[in-house]
């Protein structure tokens, strides 16, 4: 049981929720940029929510599904089709062997996630299936997918097997069959619209000039073309410190907004280094990181300040929503 890569796309890599516990050795977390979408994709097909899934960026691949499979596509809309027919997203889809799953133009967001019932058959490195591109480890041979790669898929079991069987019974002789329901998702950013990202104050916020502090929260920033999985580089406003700050390296976190001497802030994302030495002006709320991860280079964002308590409340509310969604999906298969 496997998936064959006919066209690899721009950057298609295996990711999960990240490699935790090894940052003290300098090993970065990696993992999906939009962990929310990865989790939902896995939940839909009956996998553990942290199972590995393909992260498909901007320009999607063309894949041959070599065996009847249950899969789910979430995240940004990269116009997925199966044998030329539009595939609905955010729901389980049962696909016949030999089908060609192809991604096309980027309609909203910029990263899709493809989960398959049973999960991809890959060895975990340091407890994770995420690809650590720079070190060349994890995921599929430590690299992004290439033409001709064949990804082995594990046989579904437990919930993923039940769901596969459920859709197999519903199958009609078309290329695929999907559910009449779909999972709720956060708003996926549109290319030309301004996306608001909530943040809390960073540890060095007070050291910036009054003008910089005000601009951070009132101006809009463009996500620069050099942005990648490591971080989003922003341009538009030059943020300056009141006076030079003596900083020594210390840990950074997912969503840390740091400001190098050139004044253009960088938001640290999935492939961030473990430590940094630049002043931190802000910290993106955990719930908004998946939304930010769907903002395309070239698009604009603006920050909205919230309190730490509010950020935590939003996080807990989202986790409760995911639990509720999980239960609702389980009920569909009773």
């Amino acid at each position: 049981m496997s998936i064959k890569v006919l066209q690899p796309g721009l950057l298609t890599s295996m990711q999960d929720l990240g490699r935790y516990g090894y940052q003290k050795h300098g090993v970065i977390v990696s993992g999906a940029m939009d962990t929310y979408s990865l989790r939902i994709a896995n939940i839909l097909v009956g996998n553990q929510e942290g199972e590995g899934a393909l992260e498909i960026a901007l320009l999607g691949p063309s894949l041959e599904i070599e065996k009847d499979s249950l899969l789910a596509i979430t995240g940004g809309n990269l116009s997925p089709t199966i044998n030329g027919k539009v595939v609905p997203m955010w729901r389980p889809v049962y696909v016949k062997a030999g089908s060609i799953l192809q991604f096309g133009a980027c309609k909203s967001g910029c990263r899709s996630y493809l989960a398959i019932a049973g999960g991809y058959d890959l060895l975990e490195v340091m407890g994770s299936k995420s690809t650590y591109l720079r070190a060349g480890i994890g995921g599929f041979q430590g690299r992004a997918l290439q033409r001709g790669d064949v990804l082995a898929v594990k046989s579904p079991h437990g919930a993923s097997l039940d769901r596969t069987e459920y859709f197999k019974r519903k199958y009609s002789p078309e290329s695929f069959v999907s559910s009449s329901w779909y999972a709720g998702r956060p708003p996926i950013p549109q290319a030309l619209r301004l996306t608001t990202i909530r943040m809390t104050r960073g540890l060095q916020f007070e050291y910036f000039t009054a003008e910089s502090k005000s601009q951070l929260l009132n101006a809009s920033f463009q996500v620069a073309a050099q942005s990648d999985r490591m971080g989003y580089r922003l341009s538009g406003v030059n943020l300056q410190l009141e006076s030079p700050l003596e900083m020594i390296s210390e840990a950074v976190a997912l969503g840390t907004v740091q400001v190098p001497p050139d004044g253009n802030p960088i938001i640290l994302l999935a492939d961030r280094q473990t430590v940094g030495g630049y002043p931190k002006i802000g910290q993106v709320a955990i719930v908004d990181v998946p939304i930010l991860a769907q903002v395309r280079p070239g698009a604009t964002i603006q920050f909205q300040e919230i309190t730490l308590e509010e950020a935590e409340r939003l996080y807990i509310a989202r986790e409760n929503d995911i639990q509720e969604l999980k239960t609702a999906i389980q009920l569909k298969f009773l």
Partner: peptide, 21 residues
């Protein structure tokens, strides 16, 4: 607690706020 990162003069402890609560 999920993990920690130690640096020159600091240690950062990463945790899951939901679990802590």
């Amino acid at each position: 607690m999920i993990e920690y990162v130690s640096a020159f003069s600091s240690v950062t402890v990463f945790y899951d706020s939901l679990m802590v609560k």
